[in-house]
């Protein structure tokens, strides 16, 4: 009997996607949690209005963090199957959760480099940057941006 080579290749790709995707996800979550602890004091707020004391004593600057993530074969398969029966695609939820948090962390890193203590008016944008939706593969960009406030160099002025 002829072996279904295509099926074997497919299952190998699926297994690789699953194993490496899972390892990468765990490592990434550990890193995210550690850095979130590190920036615990660098406030990230969705608030649009600056408190009066910040208006006079602080400079403001746009900061942003940007992440592009790609879907692995395993997630793609699960999503393709989900498309048939409906329901939430958990595999994508965790992927995008990581992407959003990573984007915010990168934004915080920029803010931290400016010496900022708070980022106001934080917003998130998501956009597909490559790939073909009908084939279920693609990359997604998540960008976080906001207004970082840091003390004026000459605050006594």
């Amino acid at each position: 009997m002829m072996l279904p080579y295509e099926l074997i290749i497919l299952l190998t790709l699926l297994l690789l996607g699953y194993v490496f995707g899972r390892l990468a996800e765990r490592r990434h979550y550990r890193s995210i949690q550690a850095r979130e602890d590190q920036y615990r004091q660098l406030l990230v707020l969705a608030e649009r209005h600056l408190p009066p004391e910040y208006v006079t004593g602080h400079e403001s600057c746009l900061v942003m963090g940007n992440v592009v993530v790609s879907v692995d074969y395993f997630k793609m398969m699960i999503a393709a199957l989900r498309n048939l029966v409906g329901g939430s695609i958990g595999a994508f939820e965790s992927l995008l959760d990581r992407a959003r948090r990573e984007a915010i962390l990168r934004m915080q890193e920029q803010a931290s480099a400016l010496g900022a203590g708070v980022v106001f008016n934080v917003k998130l944008e998501t956009c597909r940057v490559s790939g073909d939706a009908s084939r279920g593969v693609g990359s997604v960009e998540v960008m976080a941006y906001g207004t970082a406030l840091y003390p004026r160099a000459n605050a006594s002025r």
Binding site: Y29, E36, R40, L43, L45, V85, G90, R98, V118
Partner: peptide
């Protein structure tokens, strides 16, 4: 007043625990 720091939110809200292999198997 501004908070003291960013809160540590529970992990499972936006990333519900899941068994992807089981999900894959049942979907197939």
């Amino acid at each position: 007043p501004l908070p003291d720091g960013n809160p540590r939110l529970p992990e499972h809200i936006n990333n519900p625990p899941q068994n992807a292999l089981l999900e894959f198997g049942s979907l197939v």
